[in-house]
Each structure stands twice: as structure tokens, then as C-alpha cells.
Write a protein that binds this DNA or RNA. Structure first.
Lengths: 280, 280
DNA sequence: GTTCAATGGATCAAGTTCATACCATTGACT
DNA sequence: AGTCAATGGTATGAACTTGATCCATTGAAC
């Protein structure tokens, strides 16, 4: 797969704190009668860089990759020199971040040839989480953007003719996700990672790198929100069933049905989150 | 390997400047899709920080805001202290960037109370552009992602009940864009800025900040590509006509029609770009 | 058991970026 | 004419990142 790295950067830009726009304080939408100079549509803007510490961002990037199932437990991360180049940070900074993960027990490091950094456990909600209550605006944005991205991805992939290897990847992702559900005692983290893998697999088949990047970023935001509410088996079961339906529609080459099912799936998560938000 | 597939790579990503998860911004405007090394279930990756210079990213962010019509010629930018906070860079860095824009004649600065930084002209293609031929992967990614975003935005906004101020903003954006077309001698840059304003106005009405940010970033990438091909009046005329149709569908509250028209509009640009790419 | 390539471990100088003060200018208001 | 608040202009030191270089460890291959 080559991925093309994405081109996208920014998509994420806005999130966390306030989000945004470089621009104008008042958005056009909110009534700004004077059309003069002032009313500029605030196009989201990107923070010129990512601010904060490169160090912290590196930790977050690594955690995200693991949480989203890019590296499963037992997997070996790329060699430090390679990983640093990939994340685009210096090896020194990457090592600081890896050191933290090691201290947290998320990875273990072995020296020597054939050594490397291995994932030993999935990050738990506490390893990363922000405390406090859920920001309604963040929830709304993440959930709705996800709806847009996943609906579109399902529609696009369903209208493509998939190669056997691609079909294989999708079915595997779907079944692994289902299997974890069946096994009792599995962690919410593991389900989330495999769930993310399934959805990101679909996103990848669109062959639109920016869409993949945006989906990954958004999925991670949603997972962070899900970490703040109780893990309910029933929802997982329902989720897995929907995955199966989506997969079938995609393989059957029915774009509109796939899109509709993806929409319903997203709406399920949305209602789950909103339900808890309103009662917190 | 670890889990099969993938080789894994990239940690994440997000585009341009933003980012969050860790991500980073990459350059905002110029997006650099570079197809990376290997492939993994690469969930898009994000550079942990923005690499490059915060300074350069700041310039790019400012140029982008101006190119996308966030600040029109004659507009005053926010005070340095505010702008720096918005872009999330130190005032010192922002000033370096503004200094460049001033040297380039894009903004002028006046001291004292009621002074500030004012936009004096739109950046021309050369102020920013990357030389060389168009990267097919970048074009494909930008154009297809735009298709996804704008189609979804049109559908969403058409299904909302707009407030009078919102309708006003849209119709104004549409007509201003058309007027510029009518006036002879207007620059491609001005049309692009107003064109972007129209589309971003629609994106804003979705009330999904992440969608707005992604649309702005993608629009800028496409504008950068358009800067590399001849500016054709006929296309502008066609574009304006389509804007009118999209606006009508949105105001009429016809989601599917609005989405279809937005799709056609995006496809027009796509074909225009691909046509020149294949002949370059 | 020796060799060797891949990989983690460590250090240091140089360049960036930030944060915080404080100064200078301007023009509306009184 | 004087006042004053908002805004740009300038300076300094701390903190962070990088990039380059060299060291240490490991286990497969010979």
C-alpha cells in the first residue's frame, strides 16, 4: 500500500483547544451585517505548527498509532532511526518519547541486532486522557466529521472493484474485530484498536491519503471520548453486526446501501456518546 | 512480521498544519503527499510536529488565509498579539513572517493606535509556489478529497434550515464571485479568493469545524495546482454558473441535488487539472 | 568462536522558538 | 494641547530540537 502519506496535514489542526481559525474572530455565519472588511469567512486555519512540545506530540502520535491498531501488542516498531524519520522528529526527541512509553510499560526495548522496540500492552484510557468533562463542541465536531468521512469512504469503496487482496484485508479486519468481541475478558482497548483497523481499512481502500489521515485523526478523537464513558458489551455486539452489514454492502458493490449503513453505524456511536454526555 | 501486513509505518497524520493528535502540520498550503516508504495499514500519519520551520509554516498560514479570501485586499489583520495567539506561534516568529510579507509587498504596516497590518495585494502564484511539475499523486488526493468534502457539505447544508443571515452570507459570496468574473482585467487570484470564500461559506454552515478546516486546507492545495495551469475565462464562467445552481439547490433544501451539483462542480475542476497534467 | 551488520544508548554544539519585558508611535477624545 | 489606550518595534535569556558523531550490545552467519 504505499501510502502516500498524506497529504494532509491540517486536518486536524483545529481541535483541541479552541480551534482555530486564524482568522477572523467573528464568523460570517453569525450574523455580521456589515459586509465590509470584517466579515471574512473564517476558514479554519491551521496553526502554523503544532505547538506544544514536539516531544509531547511525538508521544501522542505513538500512542495514537498503537491505539488505532497500527501496531498491535507484540509488534515491533520500526527502528528508531526510521521511526524518527517517519514521524519527522529527531531521533533524540523520539527517544525521549519512547522512554516515556517504556516507563509506562507500553513498550519494551531490546538492544542489539534483531532488537528493537516492541509493543507490550495497549495504552489504557488513563495513559493519555485528559480529565474533566467532555466538551460538547468537541464531541459534536468529531462525531459529525466522522459521519461525513465514513459515509463517503463506504460509498467510494463500494463503487470500486476490489482486488482479492483488498477483499481479504477487509474480511480479515471484520472477523478479527468480531472474534475479540466473542472472547470474554478482552479489553475495551483491544476492541477499539481492531474496530479502528476495520474502519481505517475501508478508508484506505478509497486510495485518498488525506481521507485516511483525516479518518485516523477523527477516529482517535472519538476513541478518546469513548474512553470517558462506560464500556457496554451490548454496543460492541451491535457494532460488530453493523460491521458485517457494511462489509457485505461494500463487497456487493452497493454504494448507497454501504453509505447508509455506515451512516447508521456512525449515528449509533453518536447517540451513545450524546446519551452519556447529557447525563454527566 | 508483526502482524502481518503491514509494514507499518506512519504514525499518523494529519495535514498541514494542524494536527493534533500529534500531528502536525505540515505545510499547510503546499501539501506534500510524498508517497512514503512503505505501507502499512498506514493510517495516515502525522508528522509529530510541523517540521520545517515554524517560521515558514507561519508564512504559509498567512498566505493561505489571504489567498482563500479570509482577508481581502484592504482588510486589516488582527493585532500581532492576537494573531500570534490564533496561529499559535510567538509574536517574535509571527513578526518574522509578517516582515517577509511586508517585503513582498503583500501587506503594509502602520504603527500607533488604529494602526495595524493591512493587506495591500493578493499573493501571486510566484509568491509561494513550488516549482517543477505537478505531482500526480498530490493532484489525485487533493481533487478526490475535495470531492468528498464539498459533496458532503452541500448535502448537509441543504438539509438544514438556514437563518436569514446565513442565506445572506451565501448569496453575497455567490454574487461577489460572479461580479468579479464580469469585470475585465480582474486577476485569477481575486477570483480564486472569492471562489474559495463561497465554498468555505458553505462548509462553515455545516457547523463542523473540522470539515471547515479540511476544506480550507484542501481548497488551498487545489488553488496551488490551478496556479500552475493557464487561467481560462470559459472555466470561470462555467464555475460561476454552477455556483448559482448549487446555491439554488441549497436554498431550496434539496440535499441530493445540492450534493450532485457540488460533485459535478468538483469534477469540472478535476478534469481541468487532469487535462493539463496529462499534457504537461 | 569470530565477524559483522543492525539496532539501541549517549553526548554536544548550533540553531530555533518562546516568553516576557519594555520602548515608540499614533490619533481619538477631552 | 494633553491624555491615554491600542498597536507596532526591539531586546534578552531560557528552553527546546535538531543533526552529527561515536559507543555498546546482540545474535545470525560463517
Amino acid at each position: 500500500m504505499e501510502h502516500g502519506e498524506s497529504g494532509g496535514e491540517e486536518v486536524t489542526a483545529a481541535r483541541a483547544e479552541g480551534t482555530n481559525p486564524v482568522a477572523a474572530p467573528s464568523s460570517a455565519a453569525t450574523a455580521t451585517p456589515t459586509s465590509g472588511p470584517a466579515a471574512a469567512p473564517s476558514s479554519g486555519s491551521a496553526p502554523a505548527h503544532s505547538r506544544g512540545n514536539v516531544f509531547e506530540h511525538t508521544i501522542a502520535a505513538l500512542l495514537r498509532a498503537i491505539r488505532l491498531g497500527q501496531y498491535l501488542v507484540g509488534d515491533k516498531l520500526p527502528a528508531e532511526r526510521d521511526l524518527a524519520a517517519r514521524i519527522k522528529v529527531s531521533r533524540a526527541t523520539l527517544r525521549q518519547a519512547l522512554s516515556e512509553l517504556q516507563t509506562a510499560g507500553i513498550v519494551t526495548v531490546r538492544r542489539g541486532r534483531y532488537g528493537g522496540t516492541f509493543v507490550t500492552r495497549l495504552p489504557s484510557a488513563g495513559d493519555d486522557a485528559t480529565e474533566g468533562s467532555i466538551d460538547p463542541a468537541e464531541l459534536d465536531d468529531a462525531v459529525r466529521f466522522r459521519h461525513v468521512l465514513e459515509t463517503a469512504a463506504a460509498r467510494i469503496v463500494a463503487s470500486r472493484t476490489l482486488q482479492s487482496a483488498e477483499v481479504e484485508a477487509l474480511t480479515t479486519a471484520e472477523s478479527e474485530c468480531r472474534e475479540v468481541f466473542g472472547a470474554p475478558g478482552e479489553s475495551a482497548e483491544k476492541f477499539r484498536a481492531l474496530d479502528a483497523r476495520f474502519h481505517l481499512s475501508i478508508a484506505e481502500l478509497t486510495r485518498i491519503p488525506s481521507l485516511v489521515a483525516a479518518s485516523a485523526s477523527t477516529r482517535d478523537r472519538i476513541n478518546a471520548l469513548l474512553d470517558r464513558i462506560p464500556f457496554i458489551e451490548t454496543n460492541v455486539e451491535h457494532s460488530c453486526a453493523q460491521h458485517g452489514e457494511i462489509l457485505d454492502a461494500v463487497l456487493a458493490g452497493d454504494p448507497e446501501l454501504a453509505a447508509e449503513l455506515a451512516a447508521q453505524h456512525a449515528e449509533g456511536t453518536e447517540q451513545l456518546l450524546r446519551g452519556f454526555l447529557e447525563h454527566q
